[in-house]
Design a protein around this nucleic acid. Structure first.
Lengths: 138, 138
DNA sequence: TAAGTTAGTTTCTTCAAGGAAACTAGTTTC
DNA sequence: GAAACTAGTTTCCTTGAAGAAACTAACTTA
């Protein structure tokens, strides 16, 4: 009776590991927002990206972008302009995260609705009202 | 020319906020794994859940479950058994995260393949080999 | 009666995530 | 020539996430 419990499905364990992998990559305050922004916009300069994400500091943004670049999710291009600019864009591989990020955004949108419909008092969301539009191109 | 940049789509900002909300709820080492486990199994006792998730300590599990319960994603039921047991299960609302978690798991599975196909050396995954099965019931 | 089960809580500790502000360095505009 | 833009880096600091181990408390089995 003890053995049975331990053997609970291999596929299950594998899925748990896969979830662990993904969350290791995406966890934290900023990565998903950055990737989401880049998927929505394609090509942003450092400062524009900083402004679009909103609230993130230069150090953080720089650090997160380096990690995303190492993981082949984001491509960095230095432009030969007057004051030097750097463009960031999502890679083809990075686009494979589109569905994940879409679902995350969609759930967030419905979650707001859920909270405002039910007797919500205990949970705080990140300022600003309700929306319907999910994941349109900017 | 400066104004234009600021006005980059309202819908875009809303989506970013929605992403922020969701990630605030799901970020961290354990929550997605816990929810994923409960979606796959329906009803687990505290210790079984601890064993299934694997690696999590009692304190963490207890704390995370409380947060998930407060957010109406998980239901806690105390059973009137000999040594008292407590059952945890996903709520109907919690099931609304199924797609999100599925995509996270699916991406993780393909990400392993991606790394083992490409010249991977720099990234470490959480032990154990590749899989195909994603999100089967246990 | 000692050890093992159940479900946690408590304490103590460490490491990393993240933020603020100052700074580099080159160009451009007022 | 001062101020403001570009893209960062560096330093210094705080807080929180997470883990380890011990503990409660009631019941069970050898």
């Amino acid at each position: 009776m003890k053995k049975e419990k331990q053997e609970r499905s291999e596929a299950c364990n594998h899925t748990l590991l896969a979830i662990r992998d993904t969350m290791e990559l995406l966890s934290g305050k900023w990565k998903v927002q950055i990737i989401g922004t880049l998927i929505m916009t394609e090509k942003l300069k450092f400062m524009d990206l900083k402004r679009t994400v909103g609230g993130i500091g230069a150090k953080m943004l720089s650090k997160e972008l380096q990690e995303l670049e190492i993981n082949q999710l984001v491509k960095r291009t230095v432009c030969n302009t007057k004051p030097i600019t750097v463009e960031y864009e999502i890679t083809e591989y990075g686009k494979s995260l589109q569905k994940v990020i879409y679902e995350i955004g969609a759930w967030g949108v419905q979650h707001r609705k859920h909270l405002f419909n039910s007797t919500s008092e205990y949970v705080l969301l990140n300022e600003k009202e309700d929306t319907t539009g999910v994941f349109q191109t900017c």
